[in-house]
Design a protein around this nucleic acid. Sequence first.
DNA 1: AACTCGGGGCA
DNA 2: TGCCCAGAGTT
Length: 211
Amino acid sequence: MTPAEKIPLLHVAFSMKFPSPKSELRYDTPFQLLIATIMAAQSTDRKVNEINQTLFSICPDAVSMAATDLNTIRDTIKSINYYNNKAKNIHTVSKILLTEHGGTVPSTREELERLPGVGRKTANVVLANAFGQPVMAVDTHVQRVSNRIGLCSTTTPRETEDELIAIIPPGQVADFHHYLLLHGRYTCKARKPECETCPVTHVCDTYKSEK
DNA sequence: AACTCGGGGCA
DNA sequence: TGCCCAGAGTT
């Protein structure tokens, strides 16, 4: 079965497993999505989501975050303040949005990647989920799942991006991301994948070859 | 494209 | 405690 042929089957199976596919990635604004994605880097989701609740209640947009004292931000997110840089980064990002982008989140990769703490993966998340652009954010979950199922032919994220882009279900970039991400996080885990509860073993090259 | 970096989950 | 992981930044 080719990767493209697997897509409809994946979609059906994952739709049942993850009935509200957009819930976790749905933030009110592009700004909150951007900040939440920066926050998510190298952190666990549960903790990040809790912190974001508080963070966004204090500063829901670029204007208020830029005006918030750095120490307040530091204190709010301190349990995931990776390298002690994250607070500084999101503070700086909000100020740059104000001074260089009229208070909005830019919609090109070049502009996004110029922001501190924003790399290719975060940029792609924003492009796909806030602006609906047909790009794929390939993190380690998506890479691993794609390799195991057989949706891509290399372990190089940059090449995997292009192979996945070619088979994105039309109009469903966000869902596609979400399925692959959650599946990798909760079922197709790096250490001990839980094939017993996996909804897509019938499409999975690795499962079939190891069976 | 490969390497570095070092907090946090988990065994 | 020690191994492994996550992605941005660097080379």
